[in-house]
Nucleic acid binder design. Structure first.
Lengths: 356, 356
DNA sequence: CGGTTTTTGGCAAACGTTTGCAATAAATCG
DNA sequence: CGATTTATTGCAAACGTTTGCCAAAAACCG
């Protein structure tokens, strides 16, 4: 039965299209069409071919197809290096959501880490220019670029997620960082708070800039001076969120006139901050109100349960994939726009009016 | 300068090896060898070729190479479906660690989700049999298998991580679940605890079985009956860890004779359990001692800080990749063995002697 | 200096698909 | 029923590499 040519000690290595063709008694090209194009082949031959394919357990070779058609079906996601500031808690959900959408579209997801060294940049560029990937979703503000080659002009469809990079010409799917922080700050002001403590991310980071701007906007709108808010953490370089919170708690302890409300730019840092603050005898929200950013599930089970701004990761993931697949489909590159998906404030017990 | 054949309105689509060869004045084959094989080509020509390649920004086409040599450089990681029980907190670290090791070895990481439906299984099998991937790391106890094809006999090197699947013939990198739980249970017994509450994962799940066995072993060693421990949560199907903890807290509330020590099989469920329990007025560790499994960083900042068994994810990831790359390298498949990397107990304030 | 080895480089055949083109068979039309 | 269209299939040329084999050149040897 098995008409494999050389049946020595070699691996079977799977059935080929040629094997299917032989078994079905047709030409290779017919098999190819039967398996791919819908109406291009007689229904009867198609059935015969399908039967043969199934019988042989035939699986088309992805690389051969990729080479021939000049496209791969792999999308890469470019994650910022060792730390995911502004995203650490949500990366798994992001991956999950993106992968799910991609698979429905017939694509696969490859992970690429963009560290702060040249080799990781080179690696990503090799992926892009080597035809390995068909598109990219990037969660970093830095586009890889090394000795001449740059992701920007690789011709690869790219969409930015979480960060607004529409200025750089990239479709961007983001949430309303600034507005959300502005609103929650305004709410705190409404409750009576006048002195704020802001737990910053790394200086210059997109999310930090946006969110801090939100704070300032709210202050200004309420006629409060910029001096009403103290920043903490921004002097630190990239590090884990928990560490930032710990450090910030130390800073907080040294303040003579304590702020009554804390705005943290990630749940991680809020959690460690709260933990340390409570240890010094302060109560939340009695002495200090706390709100943070991300919306990680664990916040519900902190004591007190933490108010947090929930990033719509699922929706953002889906939207990013949709945009990317659109860009891949149509050759015409639509203008780079921002797609903003609103985040939602989850109010919990960590917020209250300040003590009179 | 540019001797591209048809310079019409077409995409440049990147320089080819042929372009490099032309520019360097050598044959294509020489370029190929210069770029890959070390000593096969004259140092002078090699320099010329490298210069040409750099000048053109040449990047080899990965799919063409893959097709020719019959191997890809992609490793897939197979993650269990929508929920990662026994791993939810640590998946990001696992990915990070594995990806890092893989890249050093010249490989790329692709994500595959194994849900409980046939299409995801088929998808994974297509990846495996379609030559797309060169090996797999699997974090699920179920090997994809559908209409004839099975991952098990795909010929693909596979190593299991977190779960012991050496019985199924897979190299497995695991931690000492059972022993670790046995030890911590013994410690609780030593402190004076006699009644235990066990927060189970989904019934039949590998981690659950192992960890519960650890509890029983410790009880037996201390001469305590199996009735000393109450299980909770096992009747639930797969769901998020936090939900399990909430449910378990309800169960706990209904017990007339309260256990004094709680052993949770994941940090998630411990955290939500503690939160709910505290709300009923019980104090930790005053009324109840709690210990959990995973070692997620957030435990340090709970109140009280949670004792947890820390899974050595980094090391496990590295070990899994090492084993996989070994298996890929040498044709001889070494016997499937278990590589056990010991976890470590992090003792914090959530554990104390029971009230007299 | 003729003969033998060693380097070095080129030719061309793979790898497993897809697809333009052409050929045949079937169907439709006037 | 001949002529024209349409449906179905096959042939063979790509796609961009790697690599076995051979030839030319260079190096070495007695």
């Amino acid at each position: 039965m098995n008409k494999n040519k050389d049946v020595a000690g070699e691996e079977p290595s799977g059935a080929l299209m040629a094997d299917v063709a032989r078994l079905a008694g047709v030409a290779i090209s017919t098999v190819s069409r039967a398996l791919a194009n819908p109406g291009r082949v007689n229904e009867k031959t198609r059935a015969k071919i399908n039967a043969a394919a199934r019988q042989l357990g035939y699986t088309p070779n992805a690389m051969a197809r990729g080479l021939r058609v000049g496209k791969s079906n792999i999308i890469m996601i470019i994650l910022p290096g060792s730390l995911y500031y502004g995203a650490s808690q949500i990366i798994p959900q992001v991956l999950q959501s993106i992968n799910k959408s991609l698979i429905q579209g017939g694509y696969n997801l490859m992970i690429a880490n963009l560290d702060r060294d040249e080799v990781s940049e080179r690696h990503i560029l090799d992926l892009a220019f080597g035809g390995s990937v068909r598109g990219a979703i990037i969660l970093s503000s830095k586009l890889p670029e090394v000795d001449g080659r740059s992701l920007a002009n690789s011709g690869l469809p790219i969409v930015s997620m979480l960060l607004d990079m529409s200025d750089a010409g990239l479709q961007s799917v983001i949430t309303n960082d600034r507005e959300a922080v502005r609103d929650v700050t305004a709410e705190l002001i409404r409750l009576g708070h006048r002195r704020f403590f802001y737990l910053a991310g790394p200086e210059g980071n997109y999310h930090d800039v946006e969110r801090y701007a939100g704070v300032l906007e709210a202050l200004e709108a309420a006629g409060l001076s910029e001096g009403s808010v103290r920043r903490s953490g921004g002097h630190l370089d990239y590090q884990h969120g928990f560490d930032i919170g710990v450090q910030a708690a130390d800073d907080f302890a040294e303040l003579t006139e304590k702020p009554t409300a804390v705005i943290a730019t990630s749940d991680d840092m809020a959690i460690s901050f709260v933990s340390r603050i409570q240890r010094t005898g302060l109560s939340i929200p009695g002495d200090v109100s706390v709100v943070s950013f991300d919306g990680s599930p664990v916040c519900e089970f902190c004591s007190p349960p933490l108010s947090t701004i929930k990033q719509p990761v699922e929706e953002m993931g889906r939207a990013a994939v949709d945009l990317l697949l659109d860009a891949i489909g149509h050759r015409q590159n639509t203008a780079a726009v921002r797609t903003v998906i609103r985040s939602s404030l989850i109010l919990r017990e960590s917020i209250a009016a300040p003590k009179s």
